[in-house]
Every structure is written in structure tokens, then in C-alpha cells.
């Protein structure tokens, strides 16, 4: 099975994730989009690991999964804090950085 299929799939997944991150209003969905992007990266890692016969990519994928877990924990905590303070998780209403 040629590896470029997997790579193309990884690109497509990443693009779907990016589109969600850039366009969606709901912070929860944006976080899910980030998870998708990370998974697309993981898929590319494992693909190249398979193509080169080297397990280094597995280690990277492992670390990325741990990173994703940490990111999800903090991101969701921030989301909960945002909701508690402003009763919304819409990103276009979370623009205090402007001021």
C-alpha cells in the first residue's frame, strides 16, 4: 500500500481541522478542530515511520498524544472559566484582547 495515500489523507484531515478552527464560532468545536489537526499530524508521523521502517515516528506520535491531552485539559479549563464569567463560549464575544 503506497504511503502517499496516507499522506494525502493526513493533509485532508488537517485542512478540515483548520477550516473548523478558522471558521466556527463555538470554542468547543474549535478545540475539536485542533484535535483533528494534531491527529492529522500523528497520521503523517506514523506514515513516514512505516515508509522508513523507523520507530522514531511512534515516539513522536506518543508525545503528541500526551501533548494533545494536556492541551485539551487546559483549553477546556479556559473554556469553562470563560463560560462562567461571560455565560457564552462564542469566540466572537470573547474579544477582550481588543481593549
Amino acid at each position: 500500500m503506497p504511503t502517499f495515500y496516507y499522506l494525502i489523507l493526513s493533509f485532508v484531515l488537517f485542512l478540515i481541522g483548520t477550516t473548523g478552527v478558522l471558521l466556527r464560532r463555538n470554542a468547543l468545536v474549535v478545540l475539536m478542530g485542533i484535535e483533528l489537526q494534531l491527529n492529522a499530524g500523528n497520521l503523517a508521523m506514523l506514515t513516514y515511520s512505516r515508509a522508513l521502517g523507523d520507530e522514531k515516528g511512534h515516539v513522536f506520535a506518543f508525545l503528541i498524544i500526551a501533548l494533545a491531552a494536556a492541551e485539551a485539559a487546559v483549553g477546556l479549563a479556559i473554556l469553562v472559566g470563560l463560560f462562567r464569567n461571560r455565560q457564552t463560549i462564542n469566540l466572537d464575544e470573547a474579544n477582550l484582547m481588543k481593549r
Binding site: N39, H58, A61, F62, I65, A68, L76
Partner: peptide
């Protein structure tokens, strides 16, 4: 992942993502 011979990572994907992270999302 499994088709790429990454068995350990395939299991980890189910455990961590589908098991842990997604539960976190559900709670939120």
C-alpha cells in the same frame, strides 16, 4: 494506525483520545 503496523499507537489512540479526552469534552 493499525494498517501502518503501529499497533501500540492504535491502542493508545483509542484509550487516550476516545477514552479520556473525549470524556473530558463530553463533561464540558
Amino acid at each position: 494506525y493499525a494498517t501502518l503496523s503501529a499497533h501500540f499507537l492504535a491502542v493508545l489512540q483509542v484509550l487516550v483520545y476516545a477514552g479520556a479526552i473525549m470524556v473530558l469534552f463530553i463533561f464540558v
